[in-house]
Design a protein around this nucleic acid. Structure first.
Length: 505
DNA sequence: ATTCCTTTGAAGCGA
DNA sequence: TCGCTTCAAAGGAAT
């Protein structure tokens, strides 16, 4: 693990960590991105050659099919214009425009040591926290930034890192930049998607339901206990953000993504948050005590999917709750209550699923996915992940180190939260070797000469357009690839579906 | 409805 | 210790 200069000690910010994201670093970031994009491009081009040679029968008009049909721009343009105008007016300059359209506002400042030696948050960390939790009040030291943050908490969503995002029915494949506001967060997001600016470490976003009432309408009472809760869980790291059940306490960054809610999530309450990870990588005392009191040392009982605040922890997934409970309730009326109770118990046991902490790459993916999606027409995660994998390798050591460090803290916090948890638990939980067999079969098939991945030979691949390629989503590359650019590492399984990525670079 | 695909990294497990 | 496997996320596609 590379040692990061997390100290900084400079109240001006951790410059070393901001290289890629500060103003001048934006260029570097662009270069980096362009390099990776260029490399992607090169790969894709070569793939194109190969594919066009070997797969000439592939459909060439599928891209046209995939494209949304031309439609009236009036509403969208008007909306965009008015919103842009509003955003321009309200943009206090806190968040600068990204290098190019389609580049989300992503800043990864010094994650290793967000605290300055004096104990205060470094500006970059503040920015990061602010980014991750736009509504979070991370007290800055400077008056200016304080004011900026204050502005950011103003009721205007345009201020905030806030991705303005409207999804129009049938426009899921829109050129995203058409929706960008001043902050240009290129997200057209399905309601259940996770915005790139949401905390990286959201173990489970599935629970987030846009239909939740706005926070200010929430009764701040624990639904289970009926005991009033503090507005913010004081001991929960924002990196373990509140899962859906928590939306009531803390406005979710995606709050404004759901226009139909119509309820602004502002103003927000301040304070209550702490450092993303407890100082010195430990859960603070109060949290530890809470954990120790609520979490058995070896396993987390089902009801402990609720966190110390009664908030379900994002790492705990309780799928398939749905309406089955009601079914069972009904059936319990007819059948033996005891057997039903037993069944429910077993169900609950099965439902509790503490997910693995995300590794560095997963964190990176989570953050960058939306960006790649915005840059390309790709939507298939498999293809996106290929690109992300390349970009991951294209990252500098320092940049990767940030994610490694983040992942390390993630694991530590996970360990603190679930002392008895083991990855093995999730092994057994799923199908017991099903995939093992499949993979073995697959490998066997590969060894028999079937070298193309199933995906590559699927209908999807046939539908992947060779040409033309969508160009409108990409802007002209602001910078040529850096001279130090080096070819990407060999891919495990090159996939031609990357062709769907834009090649206009 | 479920599984696959695809990526990297962490962790488990058998040899 | 080594090598293999699973699982984290993601969502379209395939089954």
């Amino acid at each position: 693990m590379p040692q990061l200069n997390g100290g900084g000690g400079d109240d001006l910010g951790a410059n070393d960590e901001m290289i890629s994201f500060k103003d001048e670093g934006e260029q570097e970031e662009k270069i980096s991105e362009n390099s990776s994009a260029e490399r992607d491009l090169a790969d894709v081009k070569s793939s194109l050659v190969n594919e066009s040679e070997t797969n000439q029968n592939s459909s060439s008009d599928s891209e046209a099919e995939r494209r949304p049909p031309p439609r009236s721009e009036t509403f969208r343009d008007k909306t965009r214009e008015s919103l842009e105008e509003a955003a321009k007016r309200q943009d206090g300059g806190l968040f600068k425009s990204p290098p190019y359209p389609g580049y989300p506002f992503i800043m990864i400042p010094d994650l290793t040591s967000p605290y300055l030696p004096n104990g205060s948050l470094s500006p970059t960390a503040r920015t990061y926290l602010q980014m991750k939790w736009p509504l979070l009040d991370v007290q800055p030291g400077g008056l200016q930034s304080r004011q900026a943050l204050k502005d950011a908490r103003s009721p205007s969503p345009a201020h905030i890192v806030g991705p303005f995002c409207w999804e129009f029915p049938g426009q899921s494949d829109l050129s995203l930049h058409q929706f960008h506001l001043s902050n240009k967060v290129p997200v057209v997001q399905h309601p259940h998607h996770v915005h790139p600016l949401t905390p990286l470490i959201t173990y489970s976003n599935e629970h987030f339901t846009p239909g939740n009432p706005p926070p200010h309408l929430q009764t701040d009472v624990d639904p289970k206990t009926g005991i009033p809760r503090p507005p913010h869980p004081p001991d929960i790291s924002p990196y373990y953000p509140l899962s859906p059940g928590t939306v009531g306490q803390i406005p979710h960054p995606l709050g404004w993504l759901v226009p139909q809610q119509g309820q602004p999530v502002y103003p927000i309450t301040t304070g209550g948050f702490r450092h993303p990870y407890p100082t010195a990588l430990t859960v603070n005392a109060s949290m530890s005590s809470l954990l120790s009191s609520r979490f058995p040392p070896h396993m987390v009982p089902p009801h402990h999917s609720l966190h110390t605040t009664g908030i379900p922890h994002p790492a705990i997934v309780t799928p398939n709750v749905k309406q089955e409970s009601t079914h069972s309730d009904i059936s319990s009326l007819n059948s033996s209550k005891q057997t039903d109770a037993k069944k429910e118990e077993e169900k609950k046991k099965q439902q509790v699923h503490i997910k693995k902490p995300l590794n560095a790459f997963m964190l990176y993916m989570k953050e960058m996915r939306a960006k790649v999606v915005a840059e390309c027409t790709l939507k298939e995660s498999a293809a996106i992940n290929q690109i992300l994998g390349r970009r991951w390798h294209a990252l500098s050591r320092e940049e990767q180190a940030k994610y490694y460090e983040l992942a390390r803290k993630e694991r530590q916090l996970h360990m603190q939260l679930y002392p008895g948890w083991s990855a093995r638990d999730n092994y057994a939980a799923n199908q017991q070797g099903k995939r093992k067999k499949r993979k073995r079969e697959k490998q066997q098939a590969e060894s028999n000469g079937e070298k193309k991945s199933a995906f590559a030979t699927s209908k999807v691949k046939a539908a992947v357009p060779v040409l033309p390629l969508r160009t409108e989503a990409y802007s002209t590359p602001p910078h040529p690839p850096p001279p130090q650019w080096s070819p990407p590492p060999p891919q495990k399984s090159p996939n031609l579906r990357l062709n769907k990525c834009n090649l206009s670079h």
